[in-house]
Design a protein around this nucleic acid. Structure first.
Lengths: 112, 112
DNA sequence: CGGTATCCACCATGATACTG
DNA sequence: CAGTATCATGGTGGATACCG
């Protein structure tokens, strides 16, 4: 027998998803985690299809959850850089686990 | 330098989330993966707050994605059992990675 | 350049009632 | 017991316009 605890106890994945489950959050995190610091404009250009509004929203949400750090430079023209926090970097195993699962699954694309 | 591939190439997490990102899907999967086969009513009772409608919908979606298998017994009263497929069972490392991250993170609950 | 302020559309969630 | 059908709603996502 495994346990009789609540699901959240054993599986906080719903909570994790609440933090990184936005439409663009994973993409943003992936870039910042695996590619390092990026400026706002760089992110916007690298994430195809995202609007400024959404990029800002998702970045703010990630910042609020302590996954992204914002660095503002008082220059002209303005420069703002984003980078993954240690918390975010610690997500790499989770990313890799999902990656492995995705590529290793037996039903990648059925005839359907 | 790490790579110049697209995000999806390196990180299919958005696709993974599309499959298991529903509000209850993870909880359902967790139960079926770690506790084995369950009847419809059992799931409903074990997942606090879920309605029949939602349970059915999420189960159907999981079934469509090959993560859950449905077994119908032609009995009276009717009995329907659900169990995780091999694909779903292969998600365990991902679950565990998220679990480790959650419990190991440095900002579990700030003073805020 | 890097935002914020509005407003809107859609879809996932869910409440409720009925059924084989 | 295990659903389906229907309808309501709220939050996420997004288009657009303006600002420091």
């Amino acid at each position: 027998m495994m346990d009789t605890k609540t699901q959240t106890d054993l599986c906080p994945a719903p909570l994790v998803f609440a933090m990184i489950g936005g439409k663009w959050k994973l993409t943003i995190l992936q870039i910042l985690i695996f590619h390092g610091t990026k400026r706002f404009g760089e992110l916007r250009r690298e994430i195809d299809g995202i609007t400024q509004t959404m990029l800002t929203k998702q970045l703010r949400a990630l910042e609020d959850d302590g996954l992204v750090q914002r660095q503002i430079y008082a220059e002209v023209p303005p420069r703002v850089e984003y980078n993954a926090t240690d918390d975010a970097l610690a997500l790499r195993p989770a990313f890799e686990a999902m990656h492995s699962w995705w590529v290793g699954r037996r039903a990648p694309s059925t005839s359907k």
